[in-house]
Amino acid sequence: MDNRPKIVMDSDGIERCLTRIAYEILEKNKGMDNLVLVGIRTGGIYLALRLQKRISTIENGKIPMGILDVTLYRDDIAKSGKKAPLGKTDIPFDLTDKKVILVDDVLFTGRTIRAAMDALIDFGRPKMIQLAVLIDRGHRELPIRADYVGKNLPSSLWEAVSVNLLEKNGKDEVVIEEGT
């Protein structure tokens, strides 16, 4: 069997997905009034920044963007001595009555999104939370779905899906490989 990593989306593919998602967000929300983006650390931050650029260009204005670290809201944190490095959360605006577009790279079990929603609600009472992801790989463990999906990527549980982005990995690509 071929165990080499397989590239399932290249740089152009990622760019086109993000452009489409930007238009879908604007279409569904009828413009960017009251709309804010919140990227989930770390992949979600760069995708949210790219969406911010696109939406701001299309609508000729600046859509606010925040950064969320969900580590402290995870349901597995207290059980393990090992922890993901804690990043800064920075949401420099009030979320009350805002339509929040939560942005992440891969949607998998849904547990990260559950944690993110709990965190957002501690910051205020958003009017609505929508979810945008680049890859939906299935295997949900919670009743969560995305409003905007770049690509549905059926995968098996033992495969690893990684979204590499120029800003953190030096190149844009989505890779699937056999897990260890």
């Binding site: 670290d69 402290l72 809201y73 800064k88 959360t89 920075d90 501690d122």
Partner: peptide, 17 residues
């Protein structure tokens, strides 16, 4: 440094522990 921000929130609490 990442914990500093929590004390500036309106709800100064996270469910971690």
């Amino acid at each position: 440094e990442s914990f500093l921000e929590i004390s500036t929130r309106e709800i100064k609490k996270v469910p971690t522990l």
